[in-house]
């Protein structure tokens, strides 16, 4: 019987160059440290940029709408890569600023865009439903869980998905 030779594995312990570079006073034994005040300041950069979020989400939604029109009407079979990318960006931004409803819709569209047939009318309805509810969530500036309106929008989307039998499984 043939026996495979044992695999050779090398375990390499490297010099911790990054630690040497950043260690306070060059003392590599000291634990790494980021001033808590700096962490607080970095988080406040996020909070202060929330106004720019609103502009960025508006322009990304517009790009998404235009891209979807281009995909739907394309004769050369344009794929949904850009839809996937833009919905991922929406999700990325919305989750950072705790716009949970927008995050939810972005996440759902991102996952769905990977498995739709763009020529299928039912699938087109589902993508359009995502874009429509995202535009409403943006227009109404719904933050956090969003209460009754958010529930209603999620329901609209769930019905559109159920009706057209496209399972929205998490990636």
């Amino acid at each position: 019987m043939n026996q495979r030779p044992p695999e050779q594995v090398e375990i390499i312990h490297r010099i911790n160059r990054i630690k040497k570079k950043v260690a306070p006073g060059g003392n590599i034994e000291a634990p790494g440290f980021i001033n808590p005040e700096h962490i607080k300041n970095a988080q406040s950069v996020v909070e202060k940029s929330e106004d720019t979020y609103k502009e960025a989400i508006a322009s990304t939604l517009e790009k998404l709408r235009e891209e979807w029109e281009a995909v739907k009407t394309s004769k050369s079979g344009k794929n949904t890569d850009e839809i996937h990318r833009l919905s991922n960006h929406i999700m990325d931004m919305a989750s950072t600023y705790k716009y949970e409803l927008m995050d939810y819709f972005g996440h759902s569209l991102r996952d769905i865009s990977a498995k739709i047939d763009v020529k299928n009318k039912a699938h087109q309805t589902i993508v359009q439903a995502h874009i429509d509810v995202m535009l409403v969530a943006y227009a109404q500036n719904i933050k956090g869980q969003g209460g009754a309106t958010a529930k209603e929008l999620k329901l609209i989307l769930a019905k559109a998905i159920d009706k057209h039998e496209l399972e929205n499984t998490d990636d």
């Binding site: 090398e10 375990i11 390499i12 490297r14 990054i18 634990p31 790494g32």
Partner: peptide, 11 residues
Amino acid sequence: IDKPRPYIKSS
């Protein structure tokens, strides 16, 4: 920075 793991090299 603080908890660097060794690198493993195999096929």
